[in-house]
Amino acid sequence: MRSLVATCLLAILVVGFPIPRAAQAATGDPARGEDIYHRCLACHALNHNSVGPRHCGLFGRQAGTLKGYSYSTAMKKYGVTWNEETLDHFLENPLKAVPGTKMGYAGVKDAQERADLIAYLKQATSDPKICN
């Protein structure tokens, strides 16, 4: 029995548990994220469509489906639902994540900054005073 436990522990140490991407992500600070969000304001707003789509209702929304906004074909076909993990992947390099996206932007390369930005988006888009 002891050898079985030892074998299992060894297997865990050698192989390891697959850690989901979201679990590896840094903890976000919404206050810092609000400052980072200022970078987005030339093209985005929280509560109305602009050059880019509005962010209210972002979490849980399927990519490319917001009514009233004209998406690229590539984004319509992207097929993901926006959450912390999918946003983290997209924001790191939009043009690589979705070739053909309208979002011609290098991305937010720093993982901590992305976590902060996503934390702010989550907080702001759940605020009924902003998104009603």
Partner: peptide, 21 residues
């Protein structure tokens, strides 16, 4: 071709922001 397409996307993003301004 792909990088040219990317350049178009980048320039169009900038153009959209300029039009909004």
């Amino acid at each position: 071709a792909q990088t040219a397409n990317n350049d178009v996307a980048i320039l169009n993003s900038a153009l959209g922001a300029e039009q909004q301004a």
